Simulated scan of single mutants.
Amino acid sequence: MQIPSVVATVNKHVTNRVQGLWAWLIPPWAVVLHTGRTSGRAYRTPVVGFHTPQGFAIPVLYGPHTQWVKNLIAANGGEIRRAGRRHQLIEPRMIPAEEITASGVAGRYTRAGTWTLVATIGPRI
């Protein structure tokens, strides 16, 4: 399931600003810190993610051409703030959602979209 782009626009300008205030404190919410590919500007994007056998998995519900996904892949990583801690995201990659082998809520949620961004959680920053 891919969410319509109009929802993404509203989330970018309204919802993300509110969620960004608390998402980094309450798992499964987290905040991805990434740098713009052309602007070099620092961005913060609230996401929901889970530890899975494939790595830290973040469902990409707006499609694989989402800007934060492109930024992470182009930079070969970024950072994530979750549960009050900051870690490196290493070697992010897109995989088809059906390849996620997690079970329970993590499995259902990470397979909700068509694609999932998977990365290795690196050392704490």
Rank of each mutant, 00 (worst) to 15 (best):
W68G: 02
R108H: 15
G122Y: 03
I3Y: 00
W22F: 13
W29C: 04
Q54M: 02
V32F: 01
G63W: 07
R37Y: 06
W22Q: 03
W22R: 01
I3K: 06
T120S: 08
P46I: 03
K12V: 00
T9A: 11
Q54K: 12
M1E: 08
I73S: 09
P59C: 14
N11I: 11
S5T: 14
R124L: 12
G36Y: 13
T116L: 06
H34A: 02
P96V: 09
V105K: 12
Y109F: 10
I80E: 00
L61D: 05
I90C: 07
G36T: 09
Q54V: 08
R82W: 09
I73T: 11
R93E: 12
A8R: 09
T45A: 03
V18D: 06
M94E: 08
I26K: 07
P123R: 15
H34N: 13
H87E: 07
T52I: 10
Q19T: 13
H34T: 07
R17H: 08
I95P: 13
A30F: 09
A102I: 05
P59Q: 06
G36L: 06
P27F: 01
Q88S: 10
V10N: 01
P96F: 04
V105Q: 14
A74G: 09
H34M: 07
G107F: 04
S103C: 08
M1R: 14
G84A: 10
E91Q: 15
P27W: 00
R17S: 04
T110M: 04
H13D: 13
R41S: 11
G49H: 00
Q67L: 13
V118N: 12
M94S: 06
Y43K: 04
Q19M: 10
P64R: 09
N76F: 05
G63N: 06
V18T: 03
A42Y: 13
P59R: 07
P28M: 08
K12I: 03
Q19H: 05
H65C: 14
L25H: 04
A23Y: 02
G104W: 03
H65R: 09
G20D: 09
E91H: 11
K12Y: 04
I73F: 11
L25F: 14
A23N: 05
R82Y: 02
R41E: 10
P53G: 09
L72P: 10
I58F: 09
W24D: 10
L61C: 07
P46V: 12
P123M: 11
Y62L: 04
Q54N: 02
P96K: 12
I100N: 03
P92C: 12
T35H: 07
N11C: 03
V105C: 14
S5L: 07
K70N: 13
